[in-house]
Simulated assay, not measured.
Amino acid sequence: MAIYERIGKSYDLTRRADPDIAARLVVHLQIKSDSSYLDVGCGTGNYTLALAKNGGIWHGIDQSKKMIDVAKNKINIVAWQVAEAEALPYADRTFLGVLCTLTIHHFVALTPIFQEIYRVLAAGRFVLFTATPEQMSKYWLVEYFPEAIHKSAEQMPTLEKVRYALNDVGFNSVNIEAYSISENLQDLFLYSGKHRPEIYLDENVRSGISTFALLASADEIAAGCQRLAADINTGRITEIVNKYENNQGDYLFVIADKVAT
């Protein structure tokens, strides 16, 4: 995840916890004030802190020292640690809930990490927020940055693979909730500009999104932004956005339960 070592300092310019997503995560995790929770791949800790304000004893891990350094400079209500998801530095059954937002596309293999999460989780929930390749193929961004979106979608495990890996390590039930981008989304991740195409013309926004910062060539970004700006000016962008409309959601919450044995 070397990309996040490079963008760690500027990441929070455009990336912050969206209140609606955070509220859904609170509900799915069923947070209790006296229980412990873990955010795996916490980045600069935006969602960790948003959820910690709703109660619980929180820990956040990320493999990027730069990201954790930024997190440590925020409100000190979370125990931050640089660590690998494949080797979590916690005892068995430490947490009542584990969170993972917009991170699993960076995992080399799902099963070893899900196994570790299952190990440190007592009877409770593992909640993922992610997108599938099928969902990404319906982003209108494909029209302007086809190679980058294709590469990004290739990194994403399919829902079938996620389900299989969760079941394989022992999670008893897996539920799915679709999420569609709202017009006032505050966390500017990949498809955050679904209803606000102009944000992709801002280099600061693109630099906080790994698809643009890591996967897109400078030539593709330049050509795509030129076409996008032209379509925004002529109003053709509305036609493009409508063409990619779908009812499958843009992202997913995946809620996996571990039942007491």
Results as ranks from 00 to 15, higher is better:
3 I>S: 12
80 W>T: 02
160 E>F: 14
95 F>D: 02
146 P>M: 15
160 E>A: 15
166 L>F: 05
31 I>A: 12
16 R>L: 06
145 F>W: 06
202 D>G: 08
147 E>R: 08
156 M>D: 07
159 L>C: 07
248 Q>K: 14
252 L>S: 09
253 F>P: 03
57 I>S: 07
132 T>I: 13
79 A>F: 05
187 D>R: 03
243 K>E: 09
44 T>E: 02
196 R>T: 10
44 T>I: 08
119 R>I: 00
212 F>Q: 00
142 V>G: 13
11 Y>A: 02
255 I>F: 04
108 V>T: 11
227 R>Q: 10
79 A>W: 03
216 A>Q: 02
233 N>W: 08
215 L>F: 15
20 D>F: 14
183 E>F: 10
225 C>L: 09
180 S>L: 12
74 K>W: 11
31 I>N: 08
70 V>T: 08
168 D>G: 05
161 K>F: 11
82 V>K: 05
197 P>N: 01
172 N>Q: 14
100 C>V: 05
81 Q>F: 05
136 M>V: 07
231 D>V: 06
81 Q>M: 11
86 E>A: 10
257 D>H: 13
138 K>F: 12
210 S>K: 00
150 H>C: 13
212 F>T: 00
50 A>V: 02
111 T>N: 01
217 S>Q: 13
95 F>I: 05
54 N>H: 15
5 E>W: 07
62 D>Y: 02
196 R>G: 01
108 V>R: 11
141 L>A: 04
59 H>M: 04
246 N>F: 15
76 N>T: 05
207 S>A: 13
127 V>D: 00
190 L>C: 02
261 T>V: 14
229 A>N: 08
79 A>S: 11
35 S>V: 11
96 L>F: 10
186 Q>K: 12
258 K>I: 03
133 P>V: 09
229 A>P: 07
258 K>Y: 05
36 S>A: 14
49 L>R: 01
229 A>I: 04
106 H>C: 06
208 G>W: 02
